[in-house]
Design a protein around this nucleic acid. Structure first.
Length: 837
RNA sequence: GCGAGAGUGGCGGAACUGGCAGACGCACCGGACUUAGGAUCCGGCGCCAAUGCGGCAUGGGGGUUCAACUCCCCCCUCUCGCACCA
């Protein structure tokens, strides 16, 4: 027999060739079995697979292979999130074209994935930069435009000076660009927006339906991001007559504190500022303040240590109920882009307002009392922000906060001075990017007709591949006449094509649906395929996408549903979400600058893909970070060698059996019974851990235990025909259970055992409870809850018998000496606790 | 500050519904086989005490219970996310 030593290079090359020759992991075309759609977040084709990818895809592959063996028709696809800025940067750096760089990277990374033996249906591979893909996105865009869910708006936008493009709010992390960490600037631009806020309520409310399948952390982050606040809008009439407005609006979550308002504060950017200060003696002071605050760095301005400061405008507003004059201030802690950009100052019941009032000597008025005692406005040293009952609030006195909120809002509505209202933190999604390497936005600009949608039959609007990116990194599209020059779809006059491209997050918002029918040339997907495959049963990826990608995908799913592309009952794209932890090295995230990168390819070359996969899954539970260690991968490799050796050394006695096929009749002695018992218990544990709980580390540990038991059994069994059946069954079980994790070695040994089928096509073994029962059980003996010994007792022994045996035990006797036994707790088959005092 | 999660041997981690804490692996120590071993196999391995008995241990403190890593209350530490959102 060849290859007595475990040589992963040889084994893996052999099996990858076999799988590759026939697209060995194609999905069953007949859609009659129950389906299971497992998806890993597709990679950006940067050129290299890193260890984080390996962990992500290894988890997905185990789930895919395991579910397939358990009888599901499994969809397990892979593709490339191929548009994006790195391609442009690389093109400039290497004097190539993004399209060449991208496709070369895809080829390289696909080869790396194939070396890892993942069971993807490669016939469904997609790359979002292909016209066959993005043309459907352009169709969606036009339909969204029709529905009024896309619109153009000029406003202050996040601008990354390094990427030369705008960014969505979600893409600004602590004031920095999500990609390149440059400081984000503000720039007034007219851009295309997707109306994600129209789905704010639904996106928020439906999170509760994901509670059983998504990590609480991700749900919390999404809730936080959407940021719904319920309260009321209040209109304060302006004292002076101003040309632009007669009232100023504020939003509050605490209408019950309306009578505690002692001032109004506006953001420096508030549009009414100039008209409010017109004619005011100190108008210049106010203008200087506005200028200073507006020029502050965005990060500094949002810093939590920033001192609250403000300036009085000289103008007053009127309280809607009392008619009291309230001074109008500007301050640096009011955000222009939330609510109406103005807040009512209630110092007694809001800490910021309190700090502000104390600093500038503004009055403090208590209007909500915690049970019984009223805080003293003069001596209180912080705001009382809790609930209570209303005081000093006219006819509302005595109402509890909850009722007060509603009563005040109702009164505002009655008197036309406001209404109950809801605010979201979520902003509409700016999808315009001033970049080249993205999907063109299918709109043209006509002098007479304005912005006109391209006709659907003219799609795709192709991204020109002959455009060259200049050294300055700016998009070449505006300077590419073949792209820009076109005719107006409406009037036929010469027109200019939109040169902004779409945010690449648009592509990743619907790719999971394209996989269901990836080669469809007539439609983005067929209804039958969607009905069968969606939603994704298990989605796996990094937590860094908790807001951006997952929120956009949830939004897109609803939009496509409401436009009739998706089934009407489909709202959530991903039923279950697993966010895997990071792979660290020496306690830190792997990075070029730290120089602590472990290259998967090197590890595969040294230990084989099976060992790399095994270690990634064994080192820690999937959600947790784990530290890559040289010793750890050695250990994984050693275990596979141990399995290999067990097979090779016992080869002559191993029969071509399948898992769990030895029977009760094959059991000759206790050694054989023990091995068979271990085998079936392992099948039970691995099935639960791998298929239900996704605890691969404990599943692997269980298989290791079975292998250890087999090493003992081969010396204790007499290895007659019956024993061989027991032993061979256990061997088949080891290989079958391990095959989703380390498929190459398992296929090889399966074949060497004498099977002509693939282990990939084996059905998951079924454990037999009767094989796991024991005649004699070990029972723990406790005295007052402390372990004092163990006892071998017949399995059927009753409580009385166990109690008698326990009390007769020498160790128990010793520890109860001089004490009175007052109670004996017996847990059948497990433990006896003698309570004595 | 708000939200989520974590805290168990030298290390990664087990213990799923309260029932023998430390499975499995790494590291380490000892032995076997060897010209050799960084291969392989066997054994040991929480801490204190040690001949045995035993005592102490799951971040700290309380509580419930016959029994607590697990449930309840208080506190500490760490990680991640959000953060002047009115």
């Amino acid at each position: 027999m060849t290859h007595l030593r475990y040589d992963p290079q040889w084994v893996e090359k052999k099996w990858q060739a076999i799988w590759g020759a026939v697209n060995g992991f194609a999905v069953d075309a007949v859609l009659d079995k129950p389906k299971y759609y497992v998806l890993e977040m597709f990679p950006y084709p940067s050129g290299n697979i890193h260890m984080g990818h390996v962990r992500n895809y290894s988890i997905g592959d185990v789930v895919a292979r395991c579910k397939r063996m358990q009888g599901f028709n499994v969809l397990h696809p892979m593709g490339w999130d191929a548009f994006g800025l790195p391609a442009e940067n690389a093109a400039i750096k290497h004097r190539t074209h993004p399209v060449q760089w991208t496709y070369a990277n895809i080829d390289a990374m696909r080869a790396q994935l194939k070396r890892l033996g993942y069971s993807y249906d490669w016939a469904r591979e997609i790359a979002t930069c292909r016209p066959e893909y993005y043309r459907w996105e352009q169709v969606f865009f036009l339909r969204l435009l029709q529905k009024g869910l896309v619109y153009r708006k000029k406003s202050s936008q996040n601008w990354c000076p390094s990427c030369n493009t705008v960014l969505a709010n979600e893409q600004v992390i602590e004031g920095l660009c999500w990609r390149c960490d440059s400081r984000v600037e503000q720039k007034d631009l007219e851009q295309w927006f997707l109306k994600i806020t129209a789905y704010g309520d639904e996106l928020l409310n439906d999170l509760s339906r994901l509670e059983s399948g998504w990590p609480a952390r991700v749900l919390a982050m999404q809730r936080n991001w959407i940021g719904k606040s319920v309260g009321a809008t209040v209109r304060f009439g302006l004292v002076k007559t101003h040309a632009e407005a007669s009232a100023i609006e504020v939003f509050t979550t605490r209408p019950d504190t309306l009578f505690g308002v002692t001032f109004i504060t506006l953001a420096p950017e508030h549009p009414l500022v100039e008209s409010l200060i017109a004619g005011h003696a100190k108008a210049d002071v106010v203008r200087a303040f506005v200028k200073r605050i507006r020029n502050m760095d965005r990060i500094d301005r949002q810093s939590d240590i920033l001192e609250k400061e403000g300036v009085f405008t000289g103008a007053y507003a009127l309280h809607p109920f009392t008619g009291e004059r309230l001074p109008l201030w500007l301050s640096n802690f009011v955000l222009a882009d939330y609510g109406s950009g103005a807040v009512m100052g209630v110092p007694a019941h809001d800490q910021r307002d309190f700090d502000f009032a104390r600093k500038y000597g503004l009055p403090v008025r208590v209007v909500v009392c915690p049970r019984g005692e009223a805080p003293d406005a003069d001596t209180m040293d912080s705001a009382y922000t809790g609930d209570g009952h209303m005081v000093n609030s006219g006819s509302f006195d005595g109402l509890r906060s909850e009722d007060g909120k509603k009563a005040v809002a109702d009164a505002l509505t009655r008197e036309g001075k406001g209404a109950a209202d809801t605010q979201f933190r979520l902003r509409d999604w700016n999808i315009s990017r001033q970049r080249y390497w993205g999907a063109p936005i299918p709109v043209v600009y006509c002098e007479t007709c304005g912005h006109v949608p391209e006709k659907e039959e003219n799609l795709p609007v192709l991204l020109p591949l002959d455009a060259l990116i200049g050294a300055d990194g700016r998009s070449p599209l505006p300077d590419t006449p073949s792209f820009v020059d076109c005719v107006c779809p409406k009037c036929g006059a010469p027109a200019r094509r939109e040169t902004d491209t779409m945010d690449t997050f648009v592509e990743s918002s619907w790719y999971f649906a394209r996989y269901t029918d990836a080669r469809n040339a007539n439609a983005p997907f067929s209804r039958d395929a969607l009905n069968y495959w969606l939603p994704v049963d298990q989605y796996i990826g990094g937590v860094e996408h908790a807001i951006l990608h997952l929120l956009y995908s949830r939004f897109f799913t609803r939009v496509l549903r409401d436009m009739g592309f998706f089934p009407g009952d489909l709202s959530e794209p991903f039923t279950n979400l697993l966010t895997q932890g990071m792979v660290l090295k020496d306690g830190f995230k792997m990075s070029k600058s730290k120089g602590n990168i472990v290259d998967p390819t090197e590890m595969i070359t040294q230990y084989g893909a099976d060992a790399v996969r095994l270690f990634c899954l064994f080192a820690a539970p999937p959600e947790r970070d784990f530290d890559w260690s040289a010793a750890g991968i050695e250990g994984a490799f050693r275990f596979l060698g141990r399995v290999w050796r067990l097979f090779v050394e016992e080869h002559a006695r191993i029969l071509p059996l399948t898992a769990c096929c030895a029977t009760e009749g094959d059991v000759r002695d206790e050694q054989a019974a023990a091995l068979r018992r271990k085998e079936h218990l392992t099948v039970k544990k691995v099935g639960d851990d791998m298929g239900e709980r996704f605890q691969f580390n404990t599943a692997i540990a269980a298989v290791m235990e079975l292998v250890n038991a087999m090493y003992i059994a081969r010396d204790t069994l007499t290895m007659g025909e019956a024993d061989r059946r027991i032993f061979s069954s256990a061997m088949a079980t080891v290989l079958t259970l391990l095959s989703p994790i380390t498929p190459h070695i398992c296929e090889e040994l399966w074949e060497r055992i004498g099977h002509s089928t693939r282990i990939f096509d084996q059905t998951w073994p079924v454990w037999d409870p009767s094989a796991t029962t024991r005649q004699v059980l070990t029972v723990a003996l406790q005295v007052n809850g402390k372990l004092r010994g163990t006892l071998e007792a017949p399995a059927g022994a009753g409580k009385d018998v166990l109690e008698q045996l326990a009390l007769a035990d020498a160790s128990v006797k010793r520890h109860t000496e001089g004490l009175t036994v007052c109670r004996v707790v017996v847990v059948a088959g497990k433990l006896v606790n003698v309570v004595a005092g």
